[in-house]
């Protein structure tokens, strides 16, 4: 197909295919799924979804929240909380050093960012995991921030949306990290009791203790296409059962088929879909203004071939 993309491609790359050494520094990225060479500004506008094959690349917590929430006023919740090291944990490296390394690499204090903002004018709280921060692992800060987000929802009767991407519990906080599963699940129990909706969006990957707590407890469970989602890691399972895992095992499509998800949602449609879902579920507390229903439906993005596989 000739599209905007191929028109933008330098002819050299177009003819030689996407070999890595042919990708010019800076402006071009290669899709890890289809090897297509992609023009980075366009990729960013398309929310890091490959316009050719629809592959959803991993994105940072802040990129995620920036794309999801309305522009304008946002308040970060519990931003001042930072990780401690109650066990003085040390493996081949000190936990303390791992933390400062992760903080330097990501600019985040820990692996979850929580913000109050709005989605097409509907006020809400949104949280996003930062996978580059120690694999998005859940320690005490993640738990505390998540609970702070829930508490804000309870105070102001807001819906909650959480984008998960995590390897699971944070080993370096040992049993404290395990207890974050109980803590976040209990807090979501309060949301449930208060009749406030929680939409969980699982992105690649959502595993272990995060999957087995807050991520699976959505009133509505959504996932991005082809995300790896599960409790035990595929390698551990393979070693245990000594069988080849079925095709597509633990991917979003597999979970949808087995009834664990409500929908698989393309990242480029995320705002529309979640807004629509919350407008319906949260109707007792929020209703769109008269002109709003139509006005806020965004024009399809250039690259947005919805649901393509």
């Amino acid at each position: 197909m000739t599209n905007w993309f191929q028109r933008l491609m330098p002819s050299r790359i177009r003819t030689e295919g996407g070999n890595k050494h042919n990708v010019p520094e800076g402006l071009w990225d290669k899709c890890p799924a289809c090897q297509q060479v992609l023009y980075r500004p366009e990729l960013e506008r398309g929310l890091h979804v490959c316009p050719k094959c629809g592959h959803h690349m991993r994105i940072s917590a802040r990129t995620r929240l920036n794309a999801f929430l309305d522009e304008g006023e946002r308040e970060e919740i519990a931003a001042d909380i930072a990780p401690a090291d109650p066990l003085k944990f040390r493996d081949s490296k000190k936990y303390k050093d791992r933390l400062s390394q992760a903080q330097k690499a990501t600019g985040e204090k820990d692996a979850l960012v929580v913000m109050q903002g709005s989605l097409k004018q509907m006020p809400l709280v949104a949280a996003a995991f930062e996978f580059r921060f120690m694999g998005g692992s859940m320690g005490a800060v993640v738990g505390a921030r998540f609970v702070a987000g829930v508490e804000r929802c309870l105070e102001q009767q807001l819906p909650l949306v959480c984008f998960s991407t995590s390897g699971g519990a944070r080993m370096q906080e040992s049993l404290f990290s395990l207890m974050q599963m109980a803590k976040t699940s209990a807090a979501l129990g309060r949301m449930r009791k208060a009749g406030l909706p929680f939409i969980s969006v699982m992105t690649d990957p959502t595993m272990g203790g995060v999957s087995a707590s807050l991520a699976m407890l959505g009133d509505i469970n959504l996932a991005e296409p082809k995300a790896l989602i599960g409790f035990a890691g595929p390698r551990v399972i393979e070693q245990t059962v000594r069988e080849t895992l079925p095709e597509g095992f633990q991917r979003s499509e597999f979970l949808l088929e087995h009834g664990a998800l409500d929908q698989i949602v393309d990242r480029r449609e995320m705002r529309d879909r979640i807004h629509n879902l919350l407008s319906l579920l949260h109707h007792r507390h929020w209703q769109p203004g008269p002109a709003q229903t139509e006005a806020t439906m965004e024009a399809p993005r250039e690259s947005g071939e919805a649901g393509q596989d």
């Binding site: 599963m181 109980a182 699940s185 209990a186 979501l188 129990g189 449930r192 999957s211 087995a212 707590s213 807050l214 991520a215 699976m216 407890l217 989602i229 599960g230 409790f231 035990a232 890691g233 551990v236 399972i237 245990t240 059962v241 069988e243 895992l245 079925p246 095992f249 633990q250 087995h258 009834g259 664990a260």
Partner: peptide, 19 residues
């Protein structure tokens, strides 16, 4: 850690109990 356990929603089962 088994195939069937994942198919039948191990994560959800644990999470539900916690809640």
């Amino acid at each position: 850690p088994g195939i069937g356990a994942e198919e039948r929603g191990q994560s959800e089962a644990i999470a539900k109990n916690l809640q």
